[in-house]
Computed example of a mutant assay.
Amino acid sequence: MRKPSHRVRAVLAMTAAAVLGVAGCDAVGGTSPGPSGTKARPSPTRTPVWDSSPASVAAVGDSITRGFDACAVLTDCPEVSWATGNSPEVDSLAVRLLGKSKAATHSWNYAVTGARMADLPGQMARAVTRKPQLVAVMAGANDACRSTTSAMTSVADFRARFEEAMSTLRGSLPKAQVYVASVPNLKRLWSQGRTNALGKQVWKLGICPSMLGDADAVDAAATQRRDTVEKRVEDYNKVLREVCGKDRRCRFDDDAVHDYRFGTGQLSHWDWFHPSVNGQARLAEIAYRTVTAKEA
């Protein structure tokens, strides 16, 4: 077969150029000009996956989110909750995000003192009825705070229940955002609270026996028991990180709550274990910082 002449090749090149010219920017790239006389189409605006200014907040979890022992002994005090409280001393996550007046009508606290991860799906089911744009989660301490280490929630069950809770949320609110707080360092709370005689007496009422039982014992058995609880908490936090990491609209605090060095000023002066009003304010700071960060 003969090669096409120079003239034929020139005609083919001009034809190809004409076709591409008619096709415009779709054929030659988004930054190339279209044919003469046409207006360039604006680039589509992408809605960010994470909104740092949600219009409503719901909270789920346990006694920490209920403000237990922050205001009075063995009593919930939701007004100082780090998540949804209205106390100016705490400046809760909801108040920081929504403002005080709007937080009063657009935030809801479904946490329950004593709740474990197995209770989270039910709490989540109640929370979604409000259609919150952000759900704040803090759960897991009671899964480790059991009568014995053998009674602690297994890591597999912890994962299954957290995944169930997230599935419950996503089934109703696929675009809702989730903030997940890590489980606090229970061993550090023990080391701080054991310096107070009154606190140790309250511990004997049954607060976190697996960690706080025989508070002054430092023998090999007691040390192993506390180390076992500490390891389980670390495993729980790994689960929270992994499950949350699979969801584009979920942010884990990167162990910020677990790593925070609660001192005696941040602990309840009734049980020397739960957060005080000051401790609740510190939790609110961590949550707000995580939610409003430009990147997870």
Rank of each mutant, 00 (worst) to 15 (best):
T195D: 14
E164Y: 04
L198I: 13
Q177C: 07
E164Q: 12
Q177A: 10
A125M: 10
R126A: 15
S191C: 09
S182D: 07
A125E: 12
S182M: 07
P184T: 06
T148Y: 09
G193L: 01
S154D: 09
S167D: 15
S182H: 04
M152C: 02
E163H: 12
R170E: 05
S147C: 12
P184A: 11
N185G: 03
R146N: 09
S150V: 13
F162P: 02
S150D: 15
S154C: 08
R188K: 10
S154L: 05
N185R: 09
S147L: 11
E163D: 13
S167Q: 15
A160V: 08
S167C: 13
L189C: 03
S182G: 11
K131T: 13
S150C: 06
A127I: 00
E164G: 13
K131P: 07
T148H: 10
R188V: 11
A136V: 00
F162A: 03
R188G: 05
A160K: 12
S167G: 15
V137H: 03
Y179D: 03
F158D: 02
S172V: 14
S182L: 00
A144T: 00
V183S: 07
N185D: 15
D143N: 06
F158Q: 05
M152T: 05
A125F: 09
A176D: 08
F158V: 02
V137F: 02
S167F: 11
F158N: 06
N196F: 11
M124C: 06
L186F: 01
A139T: 12
A141W: 02
V178E: 05
P132E: 04
G122S: 13
A136P: 00
A181V: 03
P184D: 04
T149D: 04
M166A: 13
Y179C: 00
V135N: 06
G171R: 10
L169Y: 10
R170Q: 08
F162S: 02
A156C: 10
N185Y: 11
C145S: 04
L173E: 03
N196G: 02
R159H: 14
M152D: 04
V128H: 07
A176P: 03
Y179V: 04
A165V: 09
Q177W: 05
P184G: 12
Q177R: 06
S154H: 09
K175P: 06
R146A: 14
L134G: 01
V183K: 05
V178C: 08
G193K: 03
A181E: 05
P132A: 04
A139S: 15
E163C: 09
L198G: 10
Q133S: 12
Y179H: 12
M138K: 07
V135W: 03
G122I: 01
S172A: 15
V128Q: 05
R130C: 08
M166F: 12
L198E: 12
R170F: 08
V178Q: 04
A197C: 10
M124Y: 02
A144L: 01
T168N: 11
M138R: 10
G122F: 02
Y179F: 14
R159N: 12
L173V: 01
W190E: 04
W190I: 00
T129N: 10
M152L: 06
S191D: 14
Q192N: 12
K131A: 14
A156Q: 14
V178A: 07
P184E: 08
N142I: 06
R170D: 01
P174S: 07
